[in-house]
Write a protein that binds this DNA or RNA. Structure first.
Length: 238
DNA sequence: AATGTCCTCAACCGCAGGGTC
DNA sequence: CGACCCTGCGGTTGAGGACAT
């Protein structure tokens, strides 16, 4: 079988940052025809981009249902612990947070990783120093506890400069919500959704699964309240 | 104001795995 | 069964903005 030239290896294809016009073309095409073949789609969508580039742009930026913007402290905690448990499986971590793997990866590489490394370096340099704020008797506990404690110390150091979580502080005015409990009523869910402009999806974290979440991150939302027709990202020309 | 350095993040690259022919 | 295609993943790069000197 002869390998046919594909859009992956065509020459003279555009590279670099996507323009708003290109984004619009890709969104419009996918909304109309769906995703059927990334290699062939750019040709029909009027894009001079490799299919791979189109896929990446869609997955990391244009598609609905992804959360963007600043990471909350709770998300930072989640990423920290999931990375510890799963390793660099960014897509798996991203799926749990409704973020993109690229975002998670960037966040880890540019923030958490550096802080953890710095913390470990300082701990190595002065192993007897107690700069963690942990009481001495806690440090004399069992090995397992000690390991857990080290994790907490690393986490605390990694996250200490983070802002307080703001993603669920809904504003403005009379619809202002701060989600602090484990349950949100349907009506509240819808209102929160409308304000957040992100899809309602069940966020199924709990402390038994990953033992990382603060109460703030335990939102129970249901996607049945989400109407894609109202979503400008899904219907860009409405 | 000019220059250098650091930081963030969008995008690219190479590879692996699964599916198809 | 092997060659090829497509997709998804993780590592890396580089442009551009922020900040420091």
């Amino acid at each position: 079988m002869v390998r046919q030239p594909t859009s992956w290896n065509r020459t003279f294809l555009m590279k670099g940052t996507w323009s708003p016009e290109e984004d619009q073309k890709l969104i419009a095409y996918i909304m109309r025809y769906g995703i059927w073949n990334w290699n062939e789609m750019p040709k029909y969508a009027g894009l001079s981009r490799p299919g791979k580039s189109c896929r990446l742009r869609w997955m990391n930026y244009l598609r609905p249902y992804i959360k963007r913007g600043n990471f909350t402290k709770a998300e930072g905690e989640t990423i920290f612990h999931l990375q510890k448990m799963l390793g660099n499986r960014w897509s798996a971590i991203a799926a749990m947070l409704q973020r993109t793997d690229n975002d998670i990866k960037n966040y880890w590489n540019t923030r958490l990783k550096k802080r953890v490394e710095n913390n470990l370096a300082s701990a190595t340099a002065s192993p007897t120093a107690n700069n963690s704020g942990i009481e001495p008797e806690q440090e004399n506990s069992s090995d397992a506890d000690s390991s857990s404690l080290n994790t907490l110390v690393e986490l605390d150091s990694a996250l200490k400069d983070f802002p307080e979580p703001a993603a669920y502080e809904i504003s403005p005015s009379e619809n202002a919500y701060t989600v602090e409990d484990n349950f949100v009523s349907s009506q509240e869910s819808w209102e929160i959704q409308s304000l957040l402009e992100q899809p309602l999806t069940e966020v199924a974290f709990d402390s038994e699964d990953c033992q990382v979440l603060s109460p703030n991150s335990q939102l129970w939302l249901h996607e049945s309240f989400y109407n894609p027709e109202d979503d400008f990202r899904v219907n860009p020309f409405i």
